[in-house]
């Protein structure tokens, strides 16, 4: 295709992505180095019959004027990145000197909001991704063993956890594990503790969020693995049968190597998706026990006081995180393309 016609065909999508993806990234970068203006304070002397008192009040007029003149706020450099809500450099310094040992240091470190969110996000990403792939693979193997007529309905039901709105899927599970819900009652029965509440315990909440993550991610892995299993070369599989491979050896030496590229692909997609984990924390009302980076941004943005600069700084840090996670893939693409 000639450059000219390519340009016209690509223009609409390029405009959309430029305006609403590339530009916001720039906007986030800029916002993160500006803080909102402080209010202009003036000292007013009120002189009454009992003498003069000096009071400070907000000069609404001047504040508005200042805000209109410089809508971005005041330039603060990297201050927001280093404050307590983000990288918390000075707090970490203080913790480091105060903490008696590494364990205490780390547990206090995770008490800082940004590091807490980061640790949950990473834990979630790196537990949910492998476990959902494994679960999906076992489901795919089982479905592959089913008679053909049963496969359609099985696939239908298996797709549901993935297709359902994340917020809704989270809510459905959350209501079930409520201490008055059916699963909550079941857990109480299992543990023999009638007051057991998943909502009240941080480790239980983490476990539930991760279980939800695996539940909702496994169908994707299942469907892709199932399709992959249909493309395993029949000749090679039969060769292995005749060569004497057992069922397990056939999986180990023929199927798994064949599915390896798919696994890499899905791991990549799932890492991207899991890193943005967000809705289940809202559904599970888990913010007291677990925050993710996305939720951290969301809670800064929402509410009465919209902390745009703080959210922007977290966003930039999140984007850096994504780039670090994707860097192996990007570097490999770069190299293989350089060679070709």
């Amino acid at each position: 295709m000639k450059h000219r016609s390519f340009f016209w065909f690509f223009l609409p999508t390029a405009t959309a992505m430029l305006l609403f993806i590339a530009f916001p990234i720039v906007s986030v970068l800029i916002q993160s180095v500006y803080a909102p203006h402080e209010q202009v304070i003036i000292e007013v002397e009120n002189c009454g019959p009992f003498g003069c008192t000096a009071t400070t009040t907000v000069d609404q007029e001047a504040t508005r004027a200042l805000r209109e003149a410089q809508p971005m706020g005041r330039f603060v450099g990297l201050d927001i990145y280093f404050n307590r809500a983000h990288l918390a450099v000075s707090e970490i310094g203080a913790l480091w000197t105060a903490a008696p040992d590494l364990g205490t240091f780390f547990s206090r470190l995770l008490g800082l909001p940004f590091y807490g969110a980061l640790s949950f996000t990473l834990t979630y990403t790196f537990l949910v991704t492998p476990f959902s792939l494994m679960l999906g693979f076992v489901i795919a193997l089982s479905v592959n063993a089913l008679p053909r007529i049963l496969r359609g309905p099985t696939i239908f039901f298996s797709l549901l956890p993935m297709i359902v709105t994340p917020l809704v899927g989270g809510l459905i599970l959350f209501w079930m594990i409520d201490s008055r819900g059916v699963l909550g009652a079941f857990f109480q029965y299992l543990s023999g503790d009638p007051d057991l509440s998943v909502k009240a315990s941080t480790p239980m909440m983490w476990v539930m969020l991760i279980v939800y993550g695996i539940w909702s991610s496994a169908p994707f892995a299942f469907v892709v693995y199932y399709a992959g299993l249909q493309t395993v070369p029949q000749d090679t599989l039969e060769s292995a049968m005749i060569d004497g491979a057992t069922r397990w050896q056939r999986i180990r030496y023929v199927m798994l190597p064949h599915l390896l590229p798919l696994t890499t692909f899905m791991a990549l997609i799932k890492i991207m998706d899991n890193f943005r984990v967000f809705e289940p924390i809202i559904s599970f009302q888990a913010s007291a026990h677990a925050q993710s980076l996305s939720y951290f941004i969301y809670s800064d943005l929402g509410g009465e006081t919209r902390l745009l600069s703080s959210a922007a700084a977290t966003s930039v840090l999140t984007i850096i995180g994504i780039v670090i996670l994707l860097s192996p893939v990007l570097v490999r693409t770069w190299r293989s393309f350089g060679k070709a």
Binding site: D235, Y253, V254
Partner: peptide, 14 residues
């Protein structure tokens, strides 16, 4: 028995 296939059936990763 041993069998030789039309498209060889070799293990591509070995």
């Amino acid at each position: 028995i041993a069998m030789v296939f039309q498209s060889y059936g070799l293990y591509p990763t070995m």
